[in-house]
Design a protein around this nucleic acid. Structure first.
Lengths: 195, 195
DNA sequence: GCCATAATAGCACAAATGTGCTATAAAAGG
DNA sequence: CCTTTTATAGCACATTTGTGCTATTATGGC
């Protein structure tokens, strides 16, 4: 049988505990109970708690990466492609909202937990690189002005995306799906017309 | 003697523990040890741990609010005023970086801790309202186009600020002070010239 | 100086935690 | 059918935690 699928299922049990009770309640016992198995069984798949946390954080990254890579953007207009890709990162539905909440909790812990440092950096570099490629694409296609400082615009775009993600997670009543999507579209509009 | 100042000092001890060891290690004992006092003394000022956490989160908000209100912007050009105010929120020096790290940790917990919900909302509304007023100011002064959707621009501006804050805290080697400041300036430039 | 009140110290206790460890059940390979 | 992994279960133990509680020391008002 597929042990990797099993591990992903257990990591998702951890996600549920984190979202319902918080990371501070995500003990080995609580996660095992959530998954409906014993402590011993859980520890058969993750020898230590750090291992489980790291796997769960990596899973967040991989899920997002998978969704992005699954998109076929070859026939899209650059502006539309950019919006489509970035909407895949923002928490605009239940699945992505779950990932974003877990990401926020784990990012907070990654500030002080050496085990998560590498994953935190990887996650930042992945999305920052994606934004950079999108900016380049818009410039090359002529949608955005050629004189742009692409690095600056990439960090700005990434800040918009992460800021929106945080707001959508922290204050969903105000930062609604529609508002978040509209703000992203607005920024991309400005980027296209910018000198 | 001033009991409020004492409480602030103890909350700052909590900040130090959060920054050094993480929120999950911020136990009553550890905070008391950091402050150099006994558990009993700490509990004389904060009857429960929730009380201490809430006070520490409120202190983050009040410190930022105090810095902003202390600014005298009456004689500033609107664009300069906006940049000055927002730079006061971003973690561009040691003191503000400390506040931002604590804010990130407590915001993560606020997702599941009812005690912090009101403070989380208050913090969002405060900064969102600030961004809204800045946008209005730019529009009224003629720096930004009058046809703007002020609500949309306010949320966008707030997303930029919070996204930059997160990046500066999570990845300071890449999101350096200079880069963060430049990105903020770039966005304000775009806002001023936007149709 | 007296005394109420504030301040500090720290013990006690039940609850929870991570992990080392052993024991049983299931599956797989030959 | 037997044996060797693999999977599951859960106990044991030392630590840590939050808070109730009592005891001791300072401090101020009068």
């Amino acid at each position: 049988m597929d042990i990797e699928a099993r591990r992903e299922g257990l990591a998702e049990a951890l996600w549920r505990v984190i979202r319902r009770d918080g990371l501070e309640r995500a003990s080995v016992r609580n996660v095992a109970r959530e998954a409906g198995i014993s402590m011993g069984a859980l520890r058969h798949y993750f020898g230590t708690q750090d291992e489980l946390l790291a796997f769960a954080m990596r899973l967040v990254i991989e899920r997002a990466r998978g969704r992005i890579e699954a998109l076929d953007l070859s026939s899209c207009a650059p502006r539309w492609a950019a919006e489509t890709v970035l909407r895949e990162v923002l928490p605009l539905d239940a699945e992505r909202r779950a990932e974003a909440e877990v990401w926020l909790a784990l990012t907070g812990r990654a500030l002080v937990d050496p085990v998560l440092w590498a994953l935190r950096d990887e996650s930042y570099d992945l999305l920052r690189g994606l934004c950079r490629r999108l900016v380049d694409m818009l410039v090359e296609s002529g949608e955005a002005a050629p004189g742009l400082d692409a690095d600056l615009e990439a960090e700005l775009l990434y800040a918009v995306v992460d800021g929106l993600a945080v707001h959508a997670v922290v204050r969903p009543e105000r930062a609604t799906d529609d508002l978040v999507a509209a703000v992203l579209a607005r920024h991309l509009d400005g980027l296209s017309r910018r000198a």
